[in-house]
């Protein structure tokens, strides 16, 4: 059930796809008519038909790519979470990826340099700000 629903959520709407394909077909027809009009030396009509044809062709392709991009974007990204392990006695600090079972203040095995137990001092994710900060 869950897989099916995810697929339903992921797919491009049939209605939208049909509109895009319709516009694509019409734009190609417009370009063909434009060529015909140009060949019989009706330049004004040819100009209009070319303009309409290329504009709608561009628009249809743009909408199609945008929709595909939106579908691709529909996934939940797991942030990379890091664990800081420290030895309080000798000050050795090690940063590694989070492992299930880690928690802050958890005592780990003995330090390589001294006999003290290492301890998890922080678990965090680093976020790179995508948005521009507002300076007003």
């Amino acid at each position: 059930m869950s897989t099916n629903s995810s697929n339903t959520a992921n797919r491009i709407s049939t209605f939208l796809l049909m509109i895009i394909l319709g516009v694509l077909a019409l734009s190609i027809v417009a370009i063909i008519f434009g060529v015909q009009a140009y060949l019989i030396e009706n330049e004004t009509v040819a100009l209009y038909l070319f303009a309409i044809g290329f504009l709608s062709l561009g628009l249809a392709v743009y909408v199609l790519f945008q929709t595909r991009k939106r579908v691709k974007k529909m996934k939940i990204e797991d942030p990379k979470v890091m664990t800081t392990v420290e030895c309080k006695k000798c000050g050795t600090k090690d940063i590694r990826e989070f492992e299930r079972g880690d928690f802050v203040f958890k005592e780990l095995d003995k330090c390589d340099k001294c006999e003290e137990n290492k301890i998890i001092t922080a678990i965090y994710k680093e976020v790179k700000e995508k948005e521009k900060p507002f300076t007003i």
Partner: peptide, 18 residues
């Protein structure tokens, strides 16, 4: 569109929980 995304998130949540 947002509802479709919400459905996806909800289903992912259910899947993760299970």
């Amino acid at each position: 569109n947002s509802l479709r995304k919400l459905k996806f998130i909800k289903e992912e949540g259910r899947k993760t929980a299970i």
